[in-house]
Design a protein around this nucleic acid. Structure first.
Lengths: 117, 117
DNA sequence: GCATAATGATACGGGTCCGTAACGATCGGG
DNA sequence: CCCGATCGTTACGGACCCGTATCATTATGC
């Protein structure tokens, strides 16, 4: 069941959602942080620093810093893997789930408002 | 002609496109820069610093700095308004148009690949 | 001509992020 | 044991961006 969308519609959708994010002032997330956050909330656990780095094609410090920032914002949390104490398991939070849900509603609503152009 | 998309589809689309942008390494654009770039390429000219700042709900230095960065990348260019030399007119470039078109194709393609979930 | 307004750019102090390299902690094999 | 491999984190120098305040340039009204 593919989703049919024309390039011009895609651009207008992309612009409008980004405008909303900027205007809401809550869009302090970079493209990398967005990719990390959505991976955590859409893919099956467990999530590790190394695994996320591999999926995004970036180095581990990038993931560590992004988790620091998003942790301050309360969007994700970390805990040690008790079975292999070298690993860190990245966990979801209530605030993170709310933010993801809000983004989903925003994209969905803006898509619904798209005209035929 | 609204575009029907479920919240779960919207999230998977958002994640996949951001993953592509990060992996391509071309995602040096922040949410603000993306909003500015798409506004320039989708809305009718002329575009000024003040006008963009008003549309995005940010201050003028934010626009100036974003234009500096995107100008270095060749995505936009600036010239003086000869009829009111206080104004600066922001213009599109070939490279910018290509980048926008590429983004449109990316979103469109990833939308087409979406399953029913 | 002169004062005022408007535009975009710049200075400043502070924060975040980058990539590379090194680090401490932990696991595992010999 | 102990040495190497693996994990996530931190250090470093550099770059970018933020918001506020200020600046030079240009236009406008009297």
């Amino acid at each position: 069941m593919p989703l049919e969308i024309r390039p011009s519609q895609a651009l207008r959708l992309w612009r409008q959602v980004h405008l909303d994010l900027v205007r809401d002032g809550q869009a302090d997330l970079s493209a990398r942080q967005t990719a990390i956050l959505l991976t955590i909330y859409l893919e099956l656990p467990p999530h590790t620093v190394r695994g996320l780095a591999a999926q995004l094609g970036v180095t581990k410090p990038v993931i560590t810093r992004a988790l620091d920032t998003m942790g301050k914002l309360g969007l994700v949390s970390r805990r040690r893997d008790e079975f292999d104490r070298r690993n860190v398991i990245i966990q979801r939070t209530v605030a993170g789930a709310l933010a993801v849900e809000k983004l989903a509603d925003l994209v969905t609503e803006r898509a619904r408002e798209l005209g035929g152009g």
